[in-house]
Nucleic acid binder design. Structure first.
Lengths: 255, 255
DNA sequence: TCAAAACAAGCAAGTTCATGCAATTATTTA
DNA sequence: TAAATAATTGCATGAACTTGCTTGTTTTGA
C-alpha cells in the first residue's frame, strides 16, 4: 500500500489549494478535486460549503465558481417581484386623472410605472431614463424627462441643473423610491441623490413612499426627510402589520 | 479522444456564458447554443426559461433577447443586426479619447453605444434615455442626458427646452441616426425631431451619419440638412459600393 | 392551410447532495 | 504519558437536481 504525501494534507491546506484552483480556472468540479486531492467527494463538498459560507467562492451544483463569475447585479431586478406588484397596485390607486406626478427611479417605482393602467391621463416628470421609457409606453401619459449628468450607480439624473429644474415644477404627487427608513425618517447614501430627492419632495403637494418592507428600520448616512413629511407610506404588508406600528402615528397614512 | 472542457460545464457556468452571448449579440438561438455548448436544446430551453424567470433575459420563440430590448419594438431591433455591428465598428473608429459627442437615438446608434470600448474616455450628450442607459454601462464615459418632453414615437426628448439646451453645447462629433437620405440631403418625418436634429448638427464640429444601406435613396417630408454638411457617411457597405457613388462627391467622406 | 420548428410536460437514468453514523486522527487535559 | 475530548473523514441512505428523451401541443412561416 502506497500512502502519498497528499494523504497527510491538512484541511486548511486543502482548502487553500481549492481556492487556488478556482482563481486559476474560475471554476472547479467536485469530482475533479476529489481525484486530485485524494479525498472523497463528500469532503470536497464540505470544503466548498465552508468556503462558500466564508464568501470566498460561489458554490453551485457540481462544484464551485469564482466569485467574479457571479452576476448578481441584475438579480436585484427580480428580487421581491410579487411584493413590488402589490405595492404597485396600492400606489396606482392614489393616482387620479389630470395629476402631475414627480417620480424617482428604482425597481419598485419601475413596477409601478409598468403596471400603470393605460387609461390614466397624467403627466409624469422623472429623473430616471429607465422609468421614462416604461411610462412612455402608456398612451395617455405625458412624460417629461428631467435631464442632467447620469449617475453611474443609480442611473438617474443628478446635479445642480436637475435640482433647479425640479424647483420650477409644481406637482401633485411625489412618488419616491427609498433606500432607508427608520424613526429618524427617510435616508439615503449618496449626496447627489439626496439633493435631487429633497428637491422632488419640496416640489410636490403630497409625498408617497412605496417600499419593500425589508427596507423598514434601515438607516443610511444622509437624511432625506422626516417621517412627518410622508403622506402615504406603502409596503406590501397590511397597514396594521406589527412592523408598521411604530410609523403609524408619524406618517399621515399607511397603505 | 476529444473531450472538450465544455462537456463538464456546470449549469451556472453555462448560464453565465449564455448571458454573455446575449449581451454580445443581443440575441441567441436555442439551436446555436445547443451546438456551441454541447447540450440538448431542451437544456438550453430550460436555461433560457430560468434566466427569463430571473428577469435576466427575454425569452422568445426560438431563443432569447437581451433584456433591454423590452422597451422598443423588438422586431425592428433585431432587424439587420449584423449590418449594424459593422456600422458600429466603423463609427467607433472615429471616436477618440477626450471627445465630447452629441448623439441621437435609434437602433443603429444603440448598436454603437453598446459596442463602445470600455477604455474610451469621452463625454456623451444624448436626447435618448435608451442610449443613455446603454452608454452609462461603460465605466469611462460621462453621460449627460438631455431632458424634455419624451416623444411617444421616437422615445427621445423633444421640445424647445431641449433645443435651447443643445445650443449651449459645443461638441466634437454629432452621431446622428437618420431615417431618410437622398440627393437632397437628410430628411425626417416628425417636425419636433427635425428641430432637435438641426440643433444637434449646429452644435457639433463634425457630423457622422451612420445608416443601414437600405435607408439610401429614401425621402421623408422634412429636411434635416444637406449632404454637404455630412462629414462621415457610414454604411455597412464598402465605401466604393455602387449604391454610394452618387453620394461620394457630396459628403466629405464615406466609410 | 399545412408542414416544420419550437415548445411544455412527464419520465427515467445518472449525478450530486445533505444527513447521520462510525472510524480515524488531532488536540487538550489530567 | 495516557485518557478524554474534539475535529475530520468516508460511507450509507434517501432526497434532490440535472439532463436527454418521448409524447403531444403550439407557434411560425411559407
Amino acid at each position: 500500500m502506497i500512502i502519498t504525501e497528499n494523504r497527510l494534507m491538512l484541511k486548511k491546506e486543502r482548502q487553500a489549494l481549492i481556492i487556488k484552483q478556482i482563481n486559476l480556472h474560475n471554476k472547479v468540479l467536485s469530482s475533479d478535486l476529489s481525484i486530485e486531492l485524494y479525498v472523497s467527494e463528500d469532503t470536497i463538498r464540505r470544503d466548498l460549503n465552508e468556503l462558500a459560507l466564508e464568501n470566498k467562492i460561489v458554490k453551485v451544483h457540481g462544484g464551485a465558481l469564482s466569485k467574479s463569475y457571479n452576476f448578481t447585479a441584475t438579480q436585484a431586478e427580480t428580487y421581491a417581484f410579487d411584493e413590488k406588484n402589490i405595492i404597485a397596485q396600492k400606489t396606482i390607486s392614489l393616482i387620479k386623472d389630470g395629476m402631475t406626478i414627480l417620480c424617482s427611479g428604482g425597481t419598485t417605482i419601475r413596477a409601478i410605472a409598468n403596471q400603470l393602467p393605460d387609461n390614466l391621463n397624467v403627466t409624469f416628470f422623472t429623473v430616471s431614463p429607465l422609468i421614462s421609457l416604461e411610462l412612455v409606453e402608456h398612451p395617455n401619459t405625458e412624460v417629461i424627462l428631467l435631464g442632467g449628468k447620469l449617475s453611474n450607480s443609480s442611473k438617474i439624473s443628478v446635479g445642480g441643473e436637475v435640482v433647479s429644474k425640479i424647483n420650477e415644477i409644481k406637482a401633485d404627487l411625489c412618488i419616491l423610491g427609498i433606500n432607508g427608513i427608520d424613526e429618524d425618517g427617510i435616508s439615503d447614501s449618496d449626496h447627489e441623490i439626496v439633493q435631487v430627492k429633497k428637491a422632488m419632495i419640496k416640489a410636490s403637494k403630497q409625498l408617497i413612499t412605496p417600499m419593500i418592507s425589508e427596507k423598514l428600520n434601515s438607516t443610511l448616512r444622509l437624511s432625506v426627510c422626516s417621517l412627518e413629511e410622508v403622506d402615504f407610506l406603502i409596503t406590501e404588508l397590511s397597514p396594521d402589520h406589527p412592523s408598521l406600528r411604530q410609523y403609524a402615528s408619524r406618517v399621515r397614512m399607511i397603505l
